[in-house]
Design a protein around this nucleic acid. Structure first.
Length: 880
RNA sequence: GGGAGAUUAGCUCAGCUGGUUCAGAGCACCUGCCUUACAAGCAGGGGGUCACAGGUUCGAACCCUGUAUCUCCCA
């Protein structure tokens, strides 16, 4: 059979993904086995795969594939998030392209368009995940706005309302003037900006005196209802009880005194605009000030301002500065740096705005979610995030859950137009309930709240409702079989940026409705950045398209590449060269397979060298597998991968295969004996299993090329190899010395420019007459013989490994000067080393305080070095 | 402004309880090889004052204090 020299990834990926699907290997249903469950962080339904998804989902797939091989009933639930604001923005933009204005559409018509868009483009990202090899149970695919999932959201709202955790009120919210909706604190991104600090003069009423107020937001002057100074500020003490005139609108407002004002900032005076700043709002509440909202929802100046009506807020800012200057009221303008909030979804500058919203009281519901992370019931990986989590949970604010959008779950609040409100699922129920409150109820006057719920108000239920959306109303005691079996899930893999958005809230929901954590471990990945440390983003154009990478390097190559550079919780500086490394590794594996496949089994005796190599690799495999398992248990993914990489490349390919490879004589490879061949196939299969979670496609491909197999005999469902009971560490150490010896011989060849084909002789100075790996050494170093002597061999090239001396008799004459120089250097180093060791041992305090085993080690070092020095001196004596 | 973390080779990172010849790995680099599994490879090699300054200790990359720089989170 002709096997291609390089591995063809595209072909294998297509074949095996389909094969796995056809054989339902990803499918999970409850059975007698222990479940291992991951719920996917649902990507936005409108999203396309980016590098962050790649990283995130590769890690999940590695975990789920390994769990499957370990015999767990592995279940990875996929799905998408309706992402209300992002999706609605996209649909609005799309309609605009078609010349349709959202404002001209009814709610029903708009939703029809939105669903149409979702059906057409939604879920592209799930198809892309398949290219990556994601082994999700696709039959379980969920969408946060699926009918049953949405119903659960409403159940939750009603439940929380009935428990008294939800209230409605006028509060200062983060308003997105472009998306025309409130957004939560977490959806505001604060960025540093260059701003102008304007010093404006306000005249004191009935006086010619002015006071100067510094502001970065002069366009809100029309909403000023006070000027505030610090009560301890001497400069303004005489103004107690006075009033000032607000420029432009000439409103007379009081001067108030409050500790809140920073004497050092600006002029130590603050204009108070309760409608447009949270702190001013608080001041306004405290001092019972009037609130004048001078902005419309879209960021233009409102009627209430009395000036500049209809002008955009930023245009107004420019204009008002100009006008104030003309009035001679501007003292100076300073350039300052300050933080400005932007909407995460639309990038518009956020406007603090008073509006009627729904809130969830967080104080009580969040308690178990805090406790159980702090006490380790839910583990965060890496642990450093516990501090961040704790800090946030201890200072958690009430959650604004209403959004002025249409795409999402509509708030189940019903009004009768006469001031009565009821919370219930249907209009029919609302009628019944309102009737009790209002005897003159007119059904045509009943309206439902126009707002929808925050997207996170549905995704916080994800680990529960993907299994049983009805559990909220049925109660935990009546949970279905799926939820009972799969909940709590095992691992959650997500980005630290949504620790509060999502992770904390899922924990809250878990304890609220299941009285149990939603997951045991939260693995937090880093942000994928480019080589220069910049976040990958569309606008920068620095993000490669993951699908292009897959095409170029193969899915396995990209998976390996991603994980080679991804420490948990730290950002990763991604570079395509990692994918190249991944692809090269895949190719290495492919070629190892080609070599083995090319062996011709003959009726020959097993060489001693092969027998020894097998014994060694048997130990090595177990030793390394143990380390790999340990890395997995600590979620050290890169380490687990690198250990696997080296086990395959260095131990298996570079040493084992070289040791057992039949000799090549007269243009023909000799046959291999059956015992060695079978052992080698066995090792290859074990390695394929160990590599499978990282490189699912190539391992499956080779698995089926190695042997004829039954339809269901696939590496994806093969049993994870086990570590053998007793690992012979001594033998492993012995082989390390042999490797060193082989390397030394190769080194000598290179130095003396001897061909690798020329056989050399090596003699070891030792009491022994043979050791276990002699024949392997002869093979690997290409020796004519490897023998032992009790006496020195004169005139031969000599070197030491540990404390043992070796000789290589060479036909050519050694250059005396070179040898003396080499040996002298080594001698000097050893003398220096001896001194440092002896100094340590001479230190009474060291001997008194250090642990005995440490002192023992130092003594050993001393004696070893002494004997080494003795040997070197003897060698030099001979040369001189 | 408040909090968390980082700084180890050219790059990306390990270094877990302070003690093995402990200063490591992978990549990159340099030298030599087209040696019939693999040039996407093989063999060999160079490279770090562990950010800086103090301190604790018999002993510090590791613990403490301060400084500098960077990153992230929150307000």
């Amino acid at each position: 059979m002709e096997i291609a020299k390089t591995y063809n990834s595209a072909q294998a990926e297509q074949t095996w993904y389909k094969y796995w699907l056809d054989n339902k290997f990803f499918k999970s249903t409850p059975d007698h086995r222990t479940p291992y469950t991951i719920v996917i962080p649902p990507p936005n339904v409108t999203g396309v795969l980016h590098m962050g998804h790649m990283l995130n989902n590769t890690i999940q797939d590695v975990l789920i594939r390994r769990a499957r091989m370990l015999g767990f009933n592995a279940c990875w639930v996929p799905g998408t998030d309706h992402a209300s604001i992002a999706t609605e923005a996209k649909v609005v933009a799309l309609l605009k392209e078609q010349g349709i204005n959202k404002a001209d559409l009814s709610r029903e018509d708009f939703l029809k368009h939105a669903w149409g868009w979702k059906e057409k483009y939604g879920g592209i990202i799930l198809e892309q995940l398949k290219k990556l090899g994601a082994s999700c149970d696709w039959d379980r695919t969920r969408f946060t706005m699926d009918e049953p999932m949405s119903e659960a959201v409403i159940d939750v709202f009603i439940d929380l309302y009935n428990k008294g955790h939800i209230y409605r009120g006028v509060r200062m919210v983060n308003w997105d003037p472009q998306g025309l909706t409130a957004v939560s604190d977490e959806e505001v991104i604060h960025k540093e900006a260059q701003s102008k600090l304007i010093y404006v003069k306000y005249q004191i009423q009935d006086s010619n005196e002015f006071m100067t107020v510094a502001t970065t937001r002069p366009e809100t002057i029309m909403g000023d209802t006070a000027v505030c100074v610090n009560p301890t500020d001497e400069r303004y003490a005489h103004l107690k009880g006075k009033q000032v005139i607000v420029p432009i609108v000439n409103r007379v407002v009081p001067i108030i005194f409050d500790e809140y004002v920073d004497k050092e900032f600006g002029t130590g005076t603050l204009k108070v605009t309760p409608a447009h700043d949270i702190n001013d709002f608080n001041l306004g509440q405290k001092h019972k000030l009037q609130t004048i909202d001078v902005l419309n929802s879209n960021g233009t100046i409102s009627e209430a301002a009395g000036a500049y009506v209809g002008l955009d807020r930023f245009a107004c800012r420019k204009q008002i500065i100009k006008d104030l200057e003309e009035l001679g009221l501007v003292v100076k303008i300073e350039d300052i740096k300050n933080k400005v909030g932007y909407s995460e979804r639309t990038n518009a500058v956020i406007e603090p705005r008073l509006s009627m919203q729904w809130f969830l009281k967080m104080e009580n519901v969040s308690k178990p979610a805090l406790e159980n992370v702090v006490n380790g019931e839910i583990k965060l990986i890496p642990e450093k995030f516990i501090n961040t989590y704790k800090h946030w949970m201890e200072n958690v604010h009430d959650w604004c859950i209403s959004r002025q959008l249409w795409w999402g779950q509509r708030i189940p609040a019903w009004y009768d137009g006469q001031g009565n409100t009821v919370i219930c699922k249907t209009k029919e129920e609302a009628v019944e309930k309102l009737k009790i409150k209002n005897s003159d109820l007119r059904i045509e006057n009943i309206t439902q709240d126009e707002d929808v719920l925050d997207t996170w108000f549905s995704s916080w239920l994800w680990p529960i409702t993907v299994f049983d959306p009805a559990v909220i109303r049925n109660g935990k005691a009546n949970a279905n079989a799926d939820l009972n079996y799969y909940y709590p899930t095992n691992d959650l893999v997500t980005a630290p940026e949504i620790l509060f958005f999502w992770v904390a809230r899922m924990a809250i929901a878990g304890y609220e409705w299941m009285q149990e954590k939603p997951f045991s471990n939260v693995y937090l990945t880093g942000i994928v950045r480019d080589k220069l440390g910049r976040k990958m983003s569309k606008s920068l154009g620095n993000s490669p398209d993951p699908l292009d990478l897959i095409e170029k390097y193969g899915a396995d190559g990209v998976r390996v590449g991603m994980l080679l550079c991804s420490p948990a919780g730290n950002d990763l500086m991604f570079d395509e060269s990692y994918c190249e490394q991944g692809r090269n590794f895949a190719n290495k594996v492919w070629n190892a397979f080609r070599l083995i496949k090319g062996f011709e089994v003959g009726n020959v005796e097993q060489p001693e060298s092969s027998n020894a190599a097998i014994t060694w690799f048997d130990n090595k495999l177990s030793e390394q597998l143990e380390i790999i398992n340990d890395h997995y248990s600590k979620y050290r993914m890169s380490d687990a991968l690198m250990t696997t990489y080296k086990l395959v490349w260095d131990d298996f390919c570079a040493w084992y295969l070289e040791a057992i490879k039949p000799e090549f004589i007269n243009g023909k490879s000799l046959p291999i004996d059956k015992v060695t061949y079978d052992a080698t196939i066995g090792y290859l299969e074990s390695l394929l299993k160990i590599m499978h979670p990282w490189m699912p496609f190539i391992t499956e491909e080779i698995w089926h090329l190695v042997n004829e197999r039954d339809a269901k005999d696939c590496v994806i469902v093969a049993e994870w190899p086990s570590v053998k009971g007793e690992i012979d560490k001594k033998q492993l150490a012995e082989f390390e010395v042999s490797k060193e010896l082989v390397a030394m011989v190769r080194n000598v060849r290179a130095q003396k420019q001897l061909s690798p084909k020329e056989k050399l002789e090596v003699i070891e100075k030792s009491e022994a007459t043979r050791s276990y790996f002699d024949s392997t050494i002869i093979k690997l170093a290409n020796l004519s013989s490897f023998s032992y002597t009790k006496d020195k061999v004169e005139g031969a090239f000599s070197f030491q490994i540990k404390t043992t001396e070796f000789y290589i008799p060479l036909a050519m004459n050694l250059n005396k000067e070179d040898e003396i120089e080499r040996l002298t250097k080594e001698l000097e180093y050893n003398i220096g080393f001896l001194q440092s060791v002896q100094k340590k041992l001479a230190n009474e305090k060291f001997v008194a305080n250090a642990k005995p085993e440490i002192i023992e080690v130092e003594r050993k070092k001393e004696s070893d070095t002494l004997s080494k020095i003795k040997t070197l001196e003897e060698q030099l004596a001979v040369l001189n």
